[in-house]
């Protein structure tokens, strides 16, 4: 379609770009404030801090035992990523390939954990986990985080698997491949991009998941985001700059993974992908 050049169309476009601009500028200001503060020697009631230093990063690292926290965070995150792929992908495959009685019901079952706020099932789940002795442990945090991520993987993977022509698998079987060989040599290579995309999104989600981790974590199983919350919540005890340094570290850990994820998936095609490639 040629560009609409009427005055009202131009005004409308201008208004929207202004909105986008304001959003981005304020976002930049917000992130900039935290980053500036994390490098500030002292910053009270002025445009810019009195001086700059990197020492808050070292003190934050030591004070909050960030090496421990980061180790725990990534143990939890990678376990969640691996397990949600392991459970979710086969389910998505079966759901995409078979029609069986009660499929609708199963689908609703898998949808519910995404449609219900984490707090709602998080509180009873935490109670159950404490009852069976997993409360406060890394295992407990992993299990709790899996509840929304497994359905997430299923939902993202179903359309992706549906658009893979089942005749490819049939062809492999005609040529004598058994189930394991079909899976290893045919399905896995085809599905890898989709699985990778889904799992990277799970990874970003899990790093940022506050509610479930907060409810189930103990002192030794805190992830970065929960540690950050406690430090902000208990502000005043520690220098605000070292909290900011920790917040910046947190932002960078997620940012790296988000950028990696965006290299693999075009985010706009999560819903539309199947249709587009079918054409």
């Amino acid at each position: 379609m040629p560009k609409d050049t009427t005055i009202s169309a131009r005004l409308w476009a201008f208004a929207i770009w202004t909105l986008v601009g304001l959003f981005l500028i304020n976002l930049l200001g917000l992130i900039g404030s935290v980053v500036t503060s994390s490098f500030a020697t002292r910053w009270l009631g002025t445009w810019l801090p009195a001086g700059f230093t990197t020492r808050w990063y070292f003190s934050a690292w030591a004070e909050f035992q960030l090496d421990d926290v980061l180790t725990v965070t990534f143990q939890i995150v990678f376990a969640v990523v691996f397990l949600s792929g392991l459970i979710g992908v086969p389910v998505a495959y079966a759901m995409a390939r078979r029609n069986f009685p009660g499929k609708q019901l199963v689908m609703i079952l898998f949808l519910l954990p995404i449609l219900v706020p984490p707090v709602t099932f998080g509180i009873p789940l935490a109670t159950v986990l404490y009852k069976v002795g997993l409360g406060g442990s890394i295992t407990g945090v992993i299990l709790a985080n899996l509840v929304p991520t497994v359905p997430f993987v299923i939902l993202v993977m179903i359309p992706f698997i549906e658009q893979v022509d089942p005749r490819i698998e049939s062809a492999a079987r005609v040529f004598g491949a058994n189930t394991r060989q079909v899976f290893l040599h045919v399905l896995l290579p085809i599905l890898t991009p989709g699985v990778l995309a889904a799992l990277l999104l799970v990874l970003v989600r899990t790093i940022a998941m506050f509610e479930l981790t907060f409810l189930t974590a103990g002192p030794t199983s805190q992830t970065l985001v929960v540690a950050l919350y406690y430090s902000v919540f208990a502000a005043g005890v520690r220098a605000v700059q070292s909290i900011d340094a920790m917040a910046v570290i947190y932002m960078l850990t997620t940012l790296v993974w988000l950028i990696i994820a965006l290299r693999f998936v075009n985010p706009t095609q999560i819903v539309a992908r199947a249709k587009r490639e079918a054409n």
Binding site: V20, F23, L24, N26, L27, G29, L30, I31, G32, S33, V34, S37, V204, I207, A208, F210, V225, L228, Y229, V232, I243, D244, A247, Y250, M251, T254, L255, L258, P267
Partner: peptide, 19 residues
């Protein structure tokens, strides 16, 4: 535009207090 996903609620809150 989707950058704030990486910030998480806690960093946004911290940033808002400052900004």
């Amino acid at each position: 535009l989707i950058l704030p996903i990486t910030l998480g609620t806690v960093l946004v809150a911290e940033g808002m207090i400052f900004y």
